[in-house]
Amino acid sequence: MLKPIFYEQVMKRILFIGTAITVFILFFIILYILKNGLPVVDLEFLLSSPKDFGRAGGIFPCIVGTIVLTLVAIIIATPLGVGTAIYLREYTREGRLTSIIRFGTECLAGIPSIIFGLFGFVLFVVYLGFGWSILSGGLTMTFMILPTIIRTSEEAIKSVPASYREVSLSLGATKWQTIIKVVLPSALPGIVTGIILGVARSIEETAVVIFTAGSVLRIPTSLFDSCRTMSVHFYILAREGISMENAYGTAAILIITILLINMFAYWLMHRLMAKYS
């Protein structure tokens, strides 16, 4: 029979080792990619077009593709997501309707990306005839990032103190004026956080993009052009063994972008929370 206090020490060590392994694995992945990828990356790599299917040259069209696709998704998802959050927080009480909408949002967040891919493919690429294009990809991506934007915007709106609204309403402002002039500006950092997380999600995504936006390696000139994002480019380089060197380089750029975006989002959220608590 172990003494409880000794037992506690043993458990504490075990838990610490578990934590250390977790942190180590996660750091290892990032450092491994950066160590192998960063030597490949230079201005030339970022700003030149790929040659020979990506064996040589840079990734410029993929950077353009990623940015354009993400922009389309964000432009559509932001009003939808923020509107939903405003409705849930400012216009209803908790009840059957809100719980259904919340459940729908949760489900949407949990749906595997491949299902979004199938759906986007049938609806936008085939039925609506957009073909493999930035428009199809962006619209499908909208649905994927919507839950993230709704959730973070809701949190942000929730954190605005009730007194702000009371003052505005007592000065004779209407509900909508209060929301536009008082609530949204105060909640802005949180809403921006949600949008940024949405951006990160759409940069990471691969399966959906292949199914809906295709993988044509050219700089797109219209919304109906196919494009290839960095994730897709990386996947094709790595899986078909076209160029390990350029795959590492692309992965390094991807990881740095995602980490910066996430850190910025975290910093913004932190600032919002510090302001109101």
């Binding site: 790595a238 975006i261 996430n262």
Partner: peptide, 15 residues
């Protein structure tokens, strides 16, 4: 740790 949820799945596959 939450930051690491953002690493693209293709990168995990590659590792």
């Amino acid at each position: 740790i939450e930051l690491l949820a953002g690493i693209p799945s293709v990168v995990y596959g590659f590792i």
